[in-house]
């Protein structure tokens, strides 16, 4: 499988939020405004790529050769939590502008199931190191795409006359359903383009 097709599949056809249902909490919670949506997604892309880059060697060179695959979950979640902390401290010290932009989102990502999800899925898919990172970046970009589109939808929703019983979260979920319906149109697209 070429890198491009992995990337496109992760962004469009197998979108993390809209078809794999990973990272729904931030998708519903932080998508009210475009700029927060962008900030959150940027942080997610960054953390996804970084945790894959770190967890992959740990899994393939430490856990698997020693028959410790059953420690995958526990090791990965701890590595991700520690990594997020570390990145935060480094950013705070050396790149304050970036920290100001992403800082508040970073700790929220520790327990985001999309991050742990992408790391674990990379193991089960049997990707190589590079493929894993490409897939993680793609998953992050897909998350961003869904967030950005959905924040647009939600800003329109604000000014709509919604039936009373659907006001609040229900209409947001139904809107999400329609957005995800439109993403289903990408089915087969990647195979169509790349043969």
């Amino acid at each position: 499988m070429s890198y491009l097709s992995i990337l496109l599949t992760a962004i469009l056809t197998a979108n993390f939020v809209l078809s794999k249902f990973l990272g729904i909490c931030p998708f519903l919670g932080v998508s009210k405004k475009l700029n927060t949506a962008m900030g959150m997604s940027a942080a997610v892309i960054f953390v996804m790529a970084l945790s894959t880059a770190v967890c992959y060697p740990i899994n393939n060179y430490i856990l698997v050769p020693n028959g410790l695959e059953y420690l995958q979950t526990i090791v990965c979640i701890l590595v991700i939590a520690a990594l997020v902390q570390l990145v935060e401290i480094i950013l705070k010290k050396f790149m304050p502008p970036l920290y100001n932009a992403l800082g508040i989102y970073l700790p929220l990502i520790t327990t985001n199931c999309a991050v742990l999800g992408v790391v674990l899925l990379n193991f089960t898919e049997g990707y190589t190191y590079l493929e894993s990172i490409v897939n993680s970046v793609g998953a992050g970009l897909g998350f961003m795409l869904a967030m950005v589109i959905f924040s647009g939808v939600r800003s329109r929703l604000e000014s709509c006359d919604v039936p009373k019983f659907l006001q609040g979260l229900p209409i947001v979920l139904i809107a999400a359903s329609i957005v995800s319906l439109s993403f289903m149109g990408f089915t087969g697209l990647v195979e169509g383009i790349l043969g």
């Binding site: 499988m1 056809t13 197998a14 089960t124 898919e125 049997g126 089915t187």
Partner: peptide, 8 residues
């Protein structure tokens, strides 16, 4: 084993 829509 073949690649399907959602994986192997």
């Amino acid at each position: 084993v073949e690649k399907g829509y959602g994986g192997d």
